[in-house]
Every structure is written in structure tokens, then in C-alpha cells.
Design a protein around this nucleic acid. Structure first.
Lengths: 336, 336
DNA sequence: CTGTTAGCGCTTTCAT
DNA sequence: ATGAAAGCGCTAACAG
């Protein structure tokens, strides 16, 4: 492994001079700069960033902690985050918590021991509070994306889940639906609570009473909620529409309904939060409240980097991104 | 920042003893181990992995270099890679080359200066040779996934592009298509060459002559090849089917066709390599040669880690994963 | 079983 | 404009 000293020897200068050439600091005569440059090339020298990190106390590594890169929302978000990180000269690590606080804890410990300069964090739930506090205690800047955590003060990039849920529900009501079922993420997750609130708000505004029987909380992970749907569809007053709180759930719901011999939207309408990626490119089917996923990532990264650089004002900033209702084929008037 | 020395002082032992407790090396009496553990907890001590890296010459960081995390194939591959990395105690960085050799070069330099322990590499093209040689010269182990690079010897995890292309083409021929157009990735990419070969092979086997007019090379990135399709569809002997060499291209093709007032598959059949992620979950439309993306990632990671640990045999290993033909609605017999 | 010394590759600080 | 010394936080190698 060739070091700065090898270069120094070859160029007949001190290590310090080489360091200055690499980092463009201090004054160096053009002649020595050239000498050093040549020596570096001849030796194929590559600076050891980790050694530098140790003394300057910054790694230029950032961490992106999400629930599942496989969810198109997070896929695109990750791309936005990586693009922004790269632009500012940071490397990006990532981890999938799978909505699991234990996994999340492991990642936080990893992140801490890696001494990353900051974390872009999509919390698994309210229980993430501990993890965030730990980051704070160790002076690791972080920005929360997608979900809030009660008790945590920091920069945030959030979607307006309540409005999105309201739009989706109002849309179903305007089509004539009166019995709408909700399959939701864990109530330990802020977006699930907000989506529930928006859902109820829209119902009440139209004089409809939310039916506790038609409200379930399965979590955001991909599942096929067979039993739940059987139960619902066996009800005397069975639902004519299902509001799935995220894309994964919508897919599970649709598959189950079809397995039960029911078609969407003829028998049951289905709408959800978040788009489906490529799906919507050729066979737009699901009516969704789409969120600007890329911006979640790039904007979050920007806030994070400004915070790290100390360019941010002391007050925390909160960016709220609006969802867009996209009406497609999965929602239609109920059978009369 | 609390260090190993702070812990040592608090526990009335030497730094070395603390180090041994952390790494579970050497013999330590239970009593001192306990003393040290307590001191660590009281001080909220977190080992500095980067400092350790400097002396043990390993960072426990791996790098995943792909073309675009947004492509469902790479999304799932990334998940497989991350899961495997985590399982073996590695952190994972990632970067998107966008099929661009210049971008790729920047990432390789980043990776080198970060002193990662290894790289899982999906080359942008044959020109990646230089980058791979650079990694090799600096003794960074790497495993190539998805694409080969002529002149590079290393562990690989590949798909059988030729067979996949053959299956897809044979399928179209068996439906009765005689004029099949190919829209392909750059011929600088091994999979594009292999897919072309499989395509031609299937045609010839059925006594069909590949028509150079019906073969185009646009690259794998998402585009809407409007002009190309106009040209093709204006031909006296216009194609009745299009073979898109990847999912992004298929989407672009379908959108253009529809814009032109043509429907798939009634007017033109479309098939492609790689599946579309969530798309296929609810509205399976595209006939595809699907590849086991998750396995590409997890298997690649496994080979990489074995290589790093020196557990691998000196000969390089090559895993070839078979694609699966999934016939769906986008392909049908040509209009008679 | 535990401690001392030296050094990983680099930069900060102070000299010159 | 350049260099020498010290140290970032940790562990290998040796000593006891």
C-alpha cells in the first residue's frame, strides 16, 4: 500500500507537502506541486480517506435508513438521496429496517460505529425515538423523512398523509361508495395515524360514520390479508371499496380479492397511497395518492448536508410535500 | 468523543484490555470483563470502526456499483446484496453509473479512496475493463454481476441472456410472427450482444433471416424511441412484434406505440428481458424473460465475501442463473 | 491474564 | 513555501 510518505520520498519533499497538494491547502510553489503530482501518478497513489477521517473527524459517509428498498417509493427516494449525496461529495450507505425496531437498532449501532457524518432516516415507528435520541447523544446529525416521531425535534421531509387520505376517500365517496374499508399500517407509525385521520375526516364530512369493523391495522409490509378480506366480504353490509394505506397492501388486497373470485373495480374498488413504479408506466390501474418520492430523497439529503456543514439556521426545518390524486381504473362506482 | 482510553481509565485497566473485551480476543478474567463492560456502558462508549480499520486494514464496508437502482431488476438485486452483506457483518455503499463510464470511473475512485473491502460490480460496458483493472491493481476483490467484461478474470454471477432471448424469440415465432424487430442495449454491453445472438439464433433456426433494418441499438436506459418506431411502422414489411432487450425499453416502446394509435398486442406484440417488479403483481401484462434478481445480489455478495475471507478456491467461479419465460398478455398472434 | 510500545496513514500546529 | 513533531483511536506484537 503506497502512502503519502512513499510519494514524499519519491518527490523529495515532506509528507506534509504532499498532503497540501492533495487537499489544495496552503501555499505550494508550482514546481513542487508538479513534482508531487508526478510522483503520485507514477506510484498510482490513492489517498486513504479513512486515515484522513480519523484526524479530521469526518468520514464523508452518509447513511440512508429506510424500511425496504424494494418498495418503489423508497427505491426512487434512494435514488434522489444518492444523487444528492454524490453531488456534494458524500458516499452513501443504506440499510433496510423492514419496519422492525430491532433491525433498526442494529443499523443505528452500525452507523454509529462507522462514524458517518449524518443519517437520512425513515423511522420504523414511534419506537424509533430511542434510536434517534442515541444518534443525537452522539452528535450525529439526522433528517427524518416520510414519518414523524413524537418527541423528536429535527429537520423533516414529510408527505401530507392526511390530505392524501382525504382525497382518496372523497374520491371513493364521490363515486357513490358508502361502505369503505381501511387496511392500514401500524398505528405506531405516524403516516398510518394521519391516513386514518384523513380517512375518518372525509367520511364524517360526508355524514358517514366510520365503521370500526371495516378498519384494520396490518402493518405496511407486503401481505396477503386473506382472512381479513373473507371476513369483510362475508359481512351483511360488506364494503364496496377498500382504501389500502400503501402500495404493498393494495397489491395484497387485489390479489386476495381476485382469488376470492371478485374483480376490481367491478365488485370492489381499491385505492392506495404511493404509486407503483413502472406499473403505472404501461398499465396504469391503481387509483393512488402519489408522492414525489425522488424529492423526498434529494431534499432530505440537501437538508442533511446543510445541517452537517453548519449552513442551516438553528431552527429545524420541515418540508411538507403534497400528494397527487391520480384516478385510474381500480376505482369505479359501486354496483347498484 | 469517548475513546478506549476513557473506558480503560474508568475501569482501571489498560486500553489493550478494553480492546480485548470489545473484540472478544485473548483471555480476560470474568471480573475484569465485567468491569470493562460496565465502564463502556456508563460512558456510552461506541468503538470507532474507522480507527480500527486503519490498523487491521479492513473497513468492513462493501460497495455495490450498479447502473440504476430504479430499475426493478437492480432494486431487487440490491436488496439481495444488502441482506447478505448485513448477515456477514458488512456495511454496504451503493452508486448508480447510469450506464456511463465516466460516472463509473468516479465511483471507482471513491471506492478506492474509501478502502472498501470489496466491490459487487455491474459494469457499464466493456470499457469498464480499465476500472476493473484499477481495482485489481489495488488489490480490491470484486465480483462481476449481470454482465461480463472481456479481458477480466473474476468471480461472476450472470444470467443466460442468450437462452432468454432465444426463448422470447421462439415464443414470438411460435405465435406466428415473422417480422420481429429488436431494440437493444449498447453492443458494448455483453448482455446486449448475447441477447442479439439468442435472437438471431432463434430466427435462423426457424429459417428466418434477421433483417438489419429491424434491429436497433439505443442503450438500456429508459427512452421513448419515437422516431425508431415511426420508421419501423412505416416500412412496407413492418414488424408485427418487438423484442425489447430490457424492461425500460419495453415500456418506452409500448408508450410510443400507443401514442401512435397502435395497441399491444393487437397491432404489435412486445416482449422483453427482466420483469417489472410490482407491475407483474396485479396486472401481469408483459411477456418477459424474468431473471432471479434477488439471487444475483445475494449470491454475488456471498462469492465476494468468500473471496475476501480467503475461503474461496483460487479458481474463479461463475454462476449462471437461468431466466424464466413468462408468457403474458403483451404477446399474441399477429393480425392475419 | 494484563500491560507497554509502536505504528496504521493522515493532518494540525508550530517552526523555519 | 516547506518541514518536524505529535496525535486522531485503535490493535499487533511482545513482555511479564
Amino acid at each position: 500500500m503506497t502512502t503519502i510518505y512513499d510519494v514524499a520520498r519519491k518527490a523529495n519533499v515532506s509528507a506534509m507537502t504532499v498532503s497540501r497538494v492533495i487537499n489544495n491547502t496552503g501555499r505550494i510553489s508550482d514546481k513542487t506541486r508538479m513534482k508531487v503530482r508526478h510522483a503520485m501518478e507514477e506510484l498510482h497513489y490513492i489517498p486513504n480517506f479513512m486515515a484522513r477521517s480519523l484526524v479530521v473527524q469526518e468520514t464523508k459517509i452518509l447513511s440512508l435508513l429506510i424500511t425496504d428498498i424494494t418498495n418503489p417509493f423508497f427505491t426512487t427516494l434512494a435514488r434522489g438521496a444518492e444523487d444528492a449525496a454524490k453531488q456534494f461529495g458524500y458516499r452513501l450507505m443504506f440499510g433496510n429496517s423492514d419496519e422492525d425496531l430491532d433491525k433498526e437498532k442494529d443499523y443505528v449501532d452500525m452507523v454509529l460505529s462507522t462514524r458517518v457524518d449524518g443519517v437520512l432516516f425513515a423511522p420504523a415507528g414511534d419506537g424509533s425515538l430511542t434510536h434517534l435520541q442515541k444518534l443525537a447523544k452522539h452528535n450525529v446529525p439526522f433528517v427524518i423523512i416520510d414519518r414523524t416521531v413524537p418527541g423528536v425535534e429535527c429537520d423533516t421531509v414529510l408527505g401530507d398523509s392526511r390530505t392524501g387520505a382525504r382525497l382518496l376517500t372523497e374520491h371513493l365517496i364521490s363515486l357513490g361508495h358508502r361502505r369503505i374499508a381501511l387496511i392500514n399500517g401500524s398505528s405506531q407509525v405516524s403516516t398510518a395515524r394521519d391516513r386514518y385521520a384523513g380517512f375518518v375526516e372525509a367520511l364524517k364530512q360526508s355524514g358517514l360514520a366510520p365503521d370500526p369493523q371495516l378498519s384494520a391495522e396490518t402493518g405496511y409490509k407486503p401481505i396477503e390479508p386473506r382472512e381479513l378480506l373473507s371476513r369483510w366480504m362475508a359481512l351483511p353490509a360488506k364494503p364496496t371499496a377498500v382504501f389500502a394505506a400503501n402500495n404493498f397492501l393494495a397489491i395484497g388486497v387485489i390479489r386476495c380479492l381476485r382469488d376470492m373470485g371478485l374483480s376490481v373495480p367491478e365488485d370492489v374498488s381499491v385505492v392506495c397511497f404511493d404509486d407503483l413504479g413502472l406499473e403505472s408506466a404501461i398499465n396504469p390501474f391503481l387509483t393512488v395518492a402519489a408522492q414525489p418520492a425522488y424529492t423526498f430523497g434529494s431534499m432530505g439529503m440537501q437538508l442533511l448536508i446543510e445541517r452537517i456543514r453548519g449552513e442551516a439556521a438553528p431552527e429545524y426545518r420541515s418540508v411538507v410535500l403534497q400528494p397527487e390524486l391520480i384516478v385510474r381504473r381500480s376505482s369505479a362506482p359501486p354496483r347498484s
